[in-house]
């Protein structure tokens, strides 16, 4: 990773977190579908990034959200699980031979189908952990499951739209 891509990743993550903090806090479609858009910043981190820095980045981002949303620990726990399974899942869903080292798992690089199969289970896992922590002892499993499902669908749609609108296309498309 060179300085330029490091800067652009940092900028992207900061921008996504600011959007998450200021605009997506109380947004919930039909009271069920939450948007965890900042996960997009973690999703497209390159596959060359080791698990340990990834875990630390995710934990601190989740913790930052927690402090603002008054949900101490919940986002942090979910983001840590997300970060631990991200490299494993990326390796599982990548084609035999793996991606090139420089490649980032974004929509324009790996295509729509693969991006969905890569991102959706991870976002769903995140939402599942988050809502289990949130509803511990109060809501039934069905509530947790439906909230997680709708939230991850909503987040996935937002993540795809953001990439289509704001990311530079690969040359040749």
């Amino acid at each position: 990773m060179n300085i330029r891509s490091l800067l652009s990743y940092t900028f992207l993550i900061i921008a996504l977190v600011v959007v998450q903090l200021l605009f997506l806090k109380n947004l919930a479609l039909f009271g069920y579908a939450f948007a965890f858009l900042y996960l997009l910043g973690l999703l497209i981190l390159p596959s060359t990034l080791k698990t340990i820095p990834l875990l630390l980045i995710s934990f601190s981002l989740g913790f930052l959200l927690d402090v603002f949303f008054e949900t101490i620990g919940m986002h942090a726990a979910a983001a840590t699980v997300f970060a631990f399974f991200k490299p494993i899942w990326l390796k599982t869903t990548s084609p035999t031979g793996g991606y090139d080292e420089v490649e980032e798992p974004s929509l324009s690089q790996i295509g729509l189908g693969r991006f969905i199969s890569y991102a959706f289970p991870l976002i769903f896992l995140y939402a599942l952990v988050f809502f289990t922590a949130d509803q511990w002892g109060t809501g039934g499993f069905l509530g947790v499951f439906s909230k997680s499902l709708f939230s991850s669908l909503f987040t996935l749609v937002l993540a795809i739209l953001v990439q289509l609108l704001f990311f530079k296309r690969r040359k040749g498309i």
């Binding site: 698990t51 875990l55 630390l56 620990g73 942090a76 726990a77 840590t80 699980v81």
Partner: peptide
């Protein structure tokens, strides 16, 4: 070590929730 760090961070997060 990655798995250990994962466990430590989870324990910290759960401790904070509780």
């Amino acid at each position: 070590r990655a798995f250990l760090l994962f466990i430590v961070l989870e324990v910290v997060a759960i401790w904070m929730i509780v």
